[in-house]
Design a protein around this nucleic acid. Structure first.
Lengths: 341, 341
DNA sequence: TAATTTTGTGGAATCGATTGCATATCGCCG
DNA sequence: CGGCGATATGCAATCGATTCCACAAAATTA
């Protein structure tokens, strides 16, 4: 309603705009009585400093961009939460940017940084190429990835905070093996995406270490959705030999897998065991409760934000990489009942 | 890396900054050959316009604030999605602001608008008072509420898009009554909050219309969390007379209620029926599947954003109120099995 | 060819807050 | 009572893009 500037206040109090600025921003000298009058006038006029002007002059936005592939995935909400905790403590705002798993959208996010819409970015991406990595490296603003990535040439200008997904899938698979399963299928994301490939490798490593063969027919490239998991499992269950257990690279797919099993009349875990990854809320709510791997999403968010804040305050020099260890949460979907002994 | 302005481009091409601005922004005259040279130079210098400068001069941020009480609640994911669809089409960015159900935080969000951090706001709030409503009404920027609220004095300066929660709880209760239940308990939010009260009224209306008494002992004020629902149900189930059915004002509480029932050894819906509201993903995943009321979250988000965009383009004059009708989704938790006839 | 329009470009002010430098006022000491 | 340092304040430039106005050059018409 009232659009007042420091000039209006200055005029009203009878001082110069510079003095008003010093009084209100707290920077620089200002006599106590003058300051009191200025503060009073500001309150009276209902003054609010113009963000754009401040940004322009100071060269800082106090905002960060959080670029995420998929808003619908509950996985990211814990991350948002973690990020937000840190940002709040530092007086930063979060701009939420939805990249839809598309490189083009990621480049748009980067472009926003170039235009100084935000001071830095936390990026969740699944596919790295010279296109996005190159653009990030050319950026003046700091970027934190939530993946483990080192470009071929090294010398990257971003930090990363990530959970070891390789390890996550590995321990999930080892768990199934320890439960006595041998024919274990794996449904993951695209193998041509880095993270998709890493997860698969976790599965393969666990299998090979146990001396089990990886059957190509039991490896599905899917899309991290419930539907995708469902489709993959259906194919296996209707085939000649069905697996004893299925590792899904995330919980949503695991739930799809469980549904397919149920429809096929298979009991979990008696007839077939299932594990997922991410440990979403729903993992403990589905029936039977789903064994999953906790990815510490909130912690990732927190640490990523912390690294970013440190970087913005110039406290970091080299590249910083933080690796978090995932934790297996065993529930009903994978426990061999009455077995062993 | 490269911090170039229109002045650098101007110098390089040998024209004035004004011409560069015209060429790149597309506004105003600019000769085709000059324009080509300018565009080429801009590309060469890797030029990106400074957002802050643009904001300052144009008086527009191309951002909107989405203030939400609770990031963890899956309910809002879909709203974010809906909002985002519209914003994207209009070239706007979303700043996500987490109010933690606190008035103080809401006022902070409003303060951000006063400082022109964003052009407008979509606000999800549970409690309205002169403090927040007054501040909103004093605002120059448009605000859309996702609740039905009219202040006592009328003449409000905001729009609202909402789902009729009264109606939602009413049809849920009517459904339980139609299934033959008479002793129906209700667990909702605080009755001193507007939306909490409205929901309760929906329950009361349905009961009274059916000639059923509302027993104060069967009405619980809780907090929309799973824990809260659990606690309320436990009290009832351990009491002398237990209800035949329970209406929960949202799905999270309903899930808590179901858990309490299960622990008490009651079968759902044979021994006790449960309905929730919001129709979250998990409603169809819990066991038994939860009857719920679909609140069209995504549609709320979309419409709210649309109203806001229209308002920002000056296309709206009076106050605009959009009311969406909720829909009952009947699942296993409330179906009387083998009854009636 | 002179007169008149059209088209293209430069000059300079502007948005609102910040800040280095210069200046003014005061207190205090010798 | 002159002068020195400390404290307070004003001046004016600055951040980078936009845009009104004026003017010049080119195209049109008489």
């Amino acid at each position: 309603m009232d659009k007042h500037t420091i000039y209006h206040i200055a005029e009203r109090v009878g001082v110069s705009p510079s003095t008003v600025s010093r009084a209100l921003s707290g920077r620089g000298y200002c006599g106590p009585k003058t300051k009191a009058k200025i503060v009073a006038a500001a309150k009276e006029l209902n003054y609010a400093p113009d963000n754009a002007a401040k940004m322009l002059k100071m060269g800082v936005t106090n905002k960060i961009l959080f670029a995420v592939p998929d808003i619908c995935n509950p996985f990211y909400f814990d991350m948002i939460n973690g990020i937000n905790q840190v940002l709040e403590a530092h007086g930063y705002l979060m701009i939420l940017f939805y990249t839809k798993h598309s490189l083009k959208e990621e480049l748009k996010a980067i472009q926003n940084l170039r235009e100084k819409v935000a001071d830095g970015m936390i990026l969740v991406s699944f596919n790295f190429s010279e296109d996005n990595i190159g653009a990030i490296n050319k950026l003046g603003a700091p970027v934190v990835l939530t993946n483990n990535y080192t470009s071929p040439h090294g010398r990257d200008r971003f930090d990363y905070v990530y959970v070891d997904t390789f390890e996550g899938i590995r321990i999930a698979t080892v768990h199934l093996i320890e439960q006595g399963n041998r024919n274990i299928a794996y449904v993951g994301g695209s193998l041509s995406e880095q993270t998709g490939y890493q997860r698969f490798c976790g599965y393969r490593e666990a299998m090979e270490e146990a001396g089990l063969a990886v059957d190509d027919g039991f490896v599905a490239e899917s899309d991290y959705t419930e539907k995708g998991g469902y489709a993959a499992a259906r194919r296996w269950l209707s085939g000649p030999a069905r697996p004893e257990a299925i590792v899904a690279a995330n919980d949503l797919m695991a739930i799809g897998v469980m549904q397919a099993c149920e429809e096929a009349g298979l009991r979990i875990p008696q007839d077939i065991a299932v594990v997922g990854m991410d440990n979403l809320d729903i993992a403990s709510r589905v029936h039977p409760k789903l064994t999953s791997v906790a990815m510490q999403q909130e912690e990732i968010g927190r640490q990523a934000a912390q690294v970013l804040m440190a970087r913005l305050q110039g406290e970091v020099s080299g590249q910083r990489a933080v690796k978090l260890i995932p934790k297996l949460v065993v529930r009903d979907s994978s426990r061999r009942v009455g077995g062993g002994a």
